[in-house]
Design a protein around this nucleic acid. Sequence first.
DNA 1: ACATTGACCTGGGAGC
DNA 2: TGCTCCCAGGTCAATG
Length: 271
Amino acid sequence: MPELPEVETTRKGIAPHLQGRTVREVIVRQRKLRWPVPRNLNALLQNQVIEQIDRRGKYLLLRMNKGTLLIHLGMSGSLRILPSQTPVQKHDHVDIVLDNGQCLRLRDPRRFGAVLWTRGDPLQHKLLAALGPEPLSNAFDADYLWQKSRGRKLAIKAFIMDSKVVTGVGNIYANEALYLAGIHPGRAAGRIARARYAELVNAIKQVLEAAIRQGGTTLRDFTASDGKPGYFRQQLHVYEREQRPCHQCGKPLQQVVISQRASYYCRYCQR
DNA sequence: ACATTGACCTGGGAGC
DNA sequence: TGCTCCCAGGTCAATG
């Protein structure tokens, strides 16, 4: 489900409820996620103060006094702030109960998400250490992306969805950014000029920023931590719009599969 | 080093 | 109603 804008929307939603609170109890109902949830999570977290909530790519970082809880939402994960007595539903796997009677509840039907504990610098954790730059940071610019693409033969769409190249760009926003930049999603990454990478970097930043402003994209089931959907769907130009008219030229949009993922584009506006 | 594929899961919709 | 098949906001590990 969530790409960077949905994770950032979640972070903004939960942070005010968590910051400065003490963990009273952790309840784990299902340990089998993408990686096993630590057995002793309750013992690890109990009585710790949640100091700060950060995001790195699609990971949420709950920084506490003795370490950091890493949360990844996978394809179908969501986090809610609820009164801790709220009856659990199917796929509610983890509760972090706070000292004010509220709890942070993870729901994840497909269980591709992750909840991991790490001491020391969380950015050095195995899963985070190799991540590429944040797409909204200054480190992510035309020079970086162009340099990185030299000699690469894979499709540009797969290239920008590679978390080692840039982190946080998933299937929706890769499609949208390539449309805005006028680049065909199947074009080899190494055969795109530097000037076009400048367009692409701008498009990625703009589409992510706009989506964050709208609270993310709800296609099927994404909700923010308050249960509300994201409204960026109304501004999608190509994603899940095959056969519908291109917003620039009016001709029907195409759908193809690139690197096993559905890809949408305009054959006339994207080269 | 790079590119491709399979694997992990459940739910919802289409088609019969 | 119910079965089977296909698809879905991710990404790591294994394989050439």
